[in-house]
Simulated scan of single mutants.
Amino acid sequence: MARLPRLNLPNIPQHIVQRGNNRQVTFVEADDYVVYLEKLKYYAKEYEVKVHAFVLMTNHIHLLATPTTSNGVSKLIQSLGRYYVRYFNQTYKRTGTLWEGRFKSTLVDSDNYFLIVSRYIELNPVRAGMVAHPAEYTWSSYQHNGAGKVIELITEHDLYTQLGTRPEQRQAQYRSLFERDIPRYTLEEIKTATDKMWVLGNDKFKQQVEEVSGRRVSPLPKGGDRKSGAFLKSKEKNQRL
């Protein structure tokens, strides 16, 4: 089956995931994280991509970012990936690829999912059992969004700034979001939409994206064959015509 073209629309946030090839380690020392974030800031500015949230895990990364052009995210990830592979290979005296061939991404319905995806990203170290709370993890945007440490890389999204009129208010309101768990079905919804490169949003948002992109934005109903209820209902209707 031919893979669908990547959904790249300007001014719509994307959840982006890039993993180490065969889940291999991509960050070893603290300097590696620093280099990656410095270059992420550089290429985000060059390609006009606003980064709202991130986490750097030992063998993969998550970003929540809004491109201002249709190909901004792709250019950012490609340029950053090439630079970091050269740095990593030179530093650790290795050769060959570092990242999986194709990064994963999904368009995010801001009104319904933006703050949830931001939490999903920053809670990765907690779900991995590395820390008990996201504030304990250094390489995450929670340090900016929740703990008040200014990270120049971060561009605060409108939905974040609406949490309060002052930085301290926004940070407190944002921290309060972490007092309740993200439902398991929502975790799966985010993961599946990103891995399969569908759209993460409600039906109205999906329909709008489909109309603009001309591309299917969600999977076909399971059992979309002669056993599915939808097929049988359609068949009955056609037989009556």
Results as ranks from 00 to 15, higher is better:
Gln78Asp: 11
Val17Glu: 01
Phe231Glu: 03
Asp109Met: 08
Thr91Val: 12
Phe205Ile: 12
Tyr160Gln: 02
Thr95Val: 15
Tyr43Asn: 03
Arg3Pro: 08
Trp99Phe: 12
Glu48Ala: 15
Val85Pro: 03
Ile116His: 05
Leu80Asn: 04
Lys39His: 15
Thr106Tyr: 03
Ala128Leu: 09
Thr58Leu: 04
Phe54Arg: 05
Ile16Thr: 02
Ser74His: 10
Val117Ser: 07
Thr192Cys: 02
Thr69Val: 08
Asn89Asp: 02
Glu48Tyr: 10
Gly96Val: 08
Tyr137His: 10
Leu123His: 01
Gly148Ile: 12
Val17Ser: 04
Leu98Asp: 03
Val17Met: 05
Val73Thr: 11
Val150Gln: 10
Tyr185Phe: 10
Gln78Val: 13
Thr66Lys: 01
Phe205Gln: 05
Thr26Tyr: 05
Leu37Ile: 03
Asn59Ala: 03
Glu122Ser: 01
Asn59Cys: 08
Val35Phe: 14
Lys233Gly: 12
Arg216Thr: 07
Gly229Asp: 13
Ala172Cys: 10
Gln78Trp: 10
Leu98Ser: 09
Glu211Pro: 05
Pro134Gln: 09
Lys206His: 04
Ser70Lys: 12
Phe178Ser: 13
Asn89Ile: 04
Asn145Glu: 07
Gly223Val: 11
Ile16Gly: 00
Asn202Asp: 13
Lys222Gln: 12
Gly223Ile: 08
Tyr83Val: 06
Asp181Ala: 12
Asn89Phe: 09
Tyr83Phe: 15
Ile154Trp: 01
Glu188Cys: 06
Arg119Trp: 03
Arg184Phe: 14
Ser118Pro: 00
Ala30Gln: 14
Asp31Glu: 15
Thr69Phe: 07
Leu7Phe: 07
Val28Trp: 09
Phe205Arg: 10
Val212Leu: 14
Arg215Ser: 04
Lys41Met: 10
Gln208Ser: 14
